[in-house]
Simulated scan of single mutants.
Amino acid sequence: MKKEFVLNRFIFIFIFIFIFILYGFNGWNGDRDAYESIFYSDGSIVVEKGFSWLADKFKGYGFNYQEFQLIISCVSLLLLYSYINKNTNNRNIFLLFYVFCFFPLDYVLVRNFLSFCICLIAFNFLQHKEDKFSFLVLLLVAYLIHQSALCFIIFVFMPLNNVLNLKKYFVFGFISLFVYFFVKDSLFEIMGLKEHFEIYANSVKSAVFNSFVHFLFSISIIFYVLKNNFLNKKDIFIVNFNLISMGFLIFYFESEILIRLIRFVLFFNMCYLSNFIFLKKNWLFCSAYMFFSGCYLFLMFLFPTLELSVYPLIFDNLLFRGVFY
């Protein structure tokens, strides 16, 4: 047992170091030029204040962008490691799924990824310590890195010790939807998102399709958990998380860029299911769910951007350039 533990830990650390090298030493990707421009600008390029502050601090200490990227990649991956280590027994299995399904886009979206990793730690406080104050503080920190973190504020209303009452769920959902339609235009304008959303204009067909996919993935895991009478805190969390995440569906009609929210939902779901993938009565559903999730993530987010995300991951790494060129 001790040898198996040591081997599993070694494999996990090896994968972690490998993806750190892929991210930290990446020399170009689809967003690299934009991030270098932000880093070397004098504040003329407007991004979230937290990220601007970080860039200015590192630049002030004499760091170049590549060194800045090395540190940001290390911090982001350590936060990710912390969440995975705490929330799944099959760390290596989930980390492999993560490497193939999420990582090739995450390393491109530097701000988004760092912000999400901070949100993961916020969810650790919420799920394991029921500390909503720390959850909100960390969400604020994440928001200062990337505004998408604000979407997770709805989870502060999530009950942690019992499954959501469906009557209250629908009443709360209806009221939230009503308020949203009244305040969204003003809110987006105050946050400076209106023009950004127009750049990433969405089609109704795409919004309907991705809303349906999100609904299907969420409702299937909810029924799976309830059917098997899994009622510990992790199970309650994943049921309520998926119920509340359906509030994201309305965002998919606002902008193509907000469809990325489904990636976060699938991250939590796949991490949860990786706990059961080797149990005889659960492996079929878990394997099928993770397989179809992986296919969706690849076809929706990675396949259209292969030359900007997947290929540069290997061919534009500073340590590997001597091998391929």
Rank of each mutant, 00 (worst) to 15 (best):
N92H: 12
P104C: 00
A142R: 07
F135M: 03
G60A: 02
L70H: 11
F100V: 13
K132I: 12
L140V: 13
A55S: 15
F58W: 07
R91P: 15
Q66P: 00
F125V: 00
F103E: 12
N112C: 09
V75D: 02
L95T: 01
F116M: 12
A55D: 12
R91V: 10
F113Y: 15
Q69K: 07
N64W: 01
N92G: 12
S115F: 06
I118F: 01
D106I: 00
Y143H: 07
V108L: 00
A149F: 02
I121Q: 03
L95R: 03
F51T: 00
D56R: 08
I71K: 04
L138E: 06
L80F: 15
N89P: 01
I71T: 04
N112D: 12
A142I: 10
V110K: 04
S76D: 06
Y65W: 08
T88Y: 13
P104S: 06
N87K: 08
L95K: 06
H146P: 11
F58A: 11
A142H: 12
V137G: 04
N90R: 05
R91A: 08
Y98E: 07
V141Y: 08
N90G: 02
A55P: 15
D106F: 15
F103R: 07
C74D: 08
C119R: 02
Y61P: 00
S134G: 01
N124H: 10
L78W: 04
L150S: 06
F123V: 00
N112P: 08
D56N: 14
F113S: 15
F125Y: 15
N124G: 07
C101L: 03
Q127I: 14
F58G: 09
S134T: 08
G60W: 01
F58Q: 02
V108F: 01
I84S: 08
Y107F: 13
F51P: 01
L139F: 05
F123T: 05
A142T: 06
L109W: 02
L144T: 13
A142S: 13
L150V: 09
I71Q: 05
I93K: 03
F51K: 03
K59I: 02
A122E: 03
C117N: 15
I121P: 01
C117M: 06
K129W: 03
I145W: 01
S134D: 05
Y143V: 03
G62Y: 03
G60V: 02
K59M: 09
N92Y: 04
L54Q: 08
F63N: 01
N92F: 10
V137E: 09
T88D: 11
F94T: 11
K86F: 00
S82G: 14
Q147M: 10
L109R: 14
P104F: 06
H146C: 07
F135G: 04
E130W: 04
G62K: 04
L78M: 13
N90Y: 08
Y61I: 10
R91N: 15
V75I: 15
